[in-house]
Simulated scan of single mutants.
Amino acid sequence: MQLEKLVLILSAVIACVFSSKLLDQEWQAWKAKHEKKYSNFRDEMFRRKAWEETWHKVQKHNELANQGLSKYRMAMNKFADMTPQERTSRKCFNSNRMSTSHDNVPVQDSYRTLNMPKSKDWRDSNCVTHVKNQGHCGSCWAFATVGVFESHHCIKTKELINFSEQQLVDCDTGNDGCCGGLPEKAMAYVTKHGIMKSQDYEYADKQFNCLYKPDNSLAFNVSKYYLLPGEENMAMSVAFDGPISVGIDASDDFSMYCNGIFDGDCSTEPNHAVIVVGYGTEHDQASGEDTDYWIIKNSWSADWGEEGYVRMKRNENKCGIGSDASSVDLAR
């Protein structure tokens, strides 16, 4: 009996040592992949602990995905050394401004008589720019706004141009630069002032003095910018007019997204602005069920999610996606 207990104890010790060495190797490989460097040993140990907690979370979740109990998988991405609190506090969608910003913005809800296509992906039209990276600046609202103008301009003119997010960060006083903002307010700014090309006003990941040059900006003939209440109107607008901006809750689960259709935990209070570039439906042969989803372009670079994109469950206001959508109409 004593011998059996000793064998069990030794087996547990060996398993722990093996697991520790495996995690050491993965930690070193992860740091190298994401070019992570820490200021001192204490800081690295704090980040290592947070990383290990994330590692266990990801392994547990992906096991559920393997069993068909979740429609998406997680990854040990560049946010893995952050605590859950840090990941969920990366807010750049300034919901505090919502009540006043919506007062003078028209609402578009006249799509109900149209027959919506079963799927749409504006990437197929070559009118969606590459996935960008907002970095540490809370400028998602600027990226969402610029992305909508880039695509709608291309749809009208067949010319795809990268416009300047930095101009909005520095010059749009209706929003708060790296401390957050709202796309509909930024749309009002662009309607009035136009926008420069990104090559003439490059993104800096920080807020500086405004360097806007009217002579170097492109003016848009905006017939209107507007809000889209509910997912039905959002889908119709995407189908017939082009990509739209939306607010979502970029929760802890969302931050660790890798691929699949996101159905993880999140609230319905938006804290992050992104761009809906399409929608579709996926059929699961095993269950025989269909799952409707949005195709969303994020601004966390192409090394996150599905090459910078996420598919999110549609028609259930997932992560508050139906709460604050907006778009523009450009006249020819």
Rank of each mutant, 00 (worst) to 15 (best):
C210W: 01
R311A: 04
V310P: 04
M256H: 13
S299G: 11
S251R: 07
M236V: 11
P229Q: 06
P229T: 10
S245R: 02
G288Y: 05
C266M: 05
C258H: 15
Q285F: 09
N221Q: 13
V274Q: 04
C210Y: 07
N271G: 13
H272G: 11
V238I: 15
D303V: 08
G278S: 01
D241P: 05
M312T: 03
G278Q: 02
L218Y: 12
G247D: 00
E306N: 14
K213N: 15
E232R: 09
V276P: 00
S251A: 01
P243G: 07
D290N: 15
W304T: 10
Y225L: 01
N298A: 10
I275N: 10
G278K: 00
A273R: 06
P270D: 07
P214I: 10
G264T: 02
D284K: 02
K313H: 08
V238W: 07
G280F: 11
F208V: 09
Y212G: 01
Y212H: 11
P243D: 10
E289I: 14
I295S: 02
S217D: 03
I248D: 04
D292Y: 06
M312G: 07
M256T: 10
N298F: 03
S287L: 01
D265A: 12
C258W: 15
H272E: 08
T268G: 10
V246L: 05
N259D: 15
E269H: 12
D284R: 06
T291N: 07
M234N: 02
F220A: 00
S237H: 10
D263C: 00
E307I: 15
R314H: 08
A286M: 12
I244H: 11
M234Y: 04
D249I: 05
S237E: 15
N221H: 12
E231Y: 01
P270T: 08
A235C: 10
G242C: 09
P243W: 00
F220S: 00
K313L: 14
G247E: 02
G264N: 03
D292F: 08
Y225A: 07
L228Q: 02
N216M: 15
G305F: 06
F262D: 00
P270V: 02
W300D: 09
P243I: 02
I261P: 01
N271H: 09
N298R: 03
G247Y: 03
S255F: 11
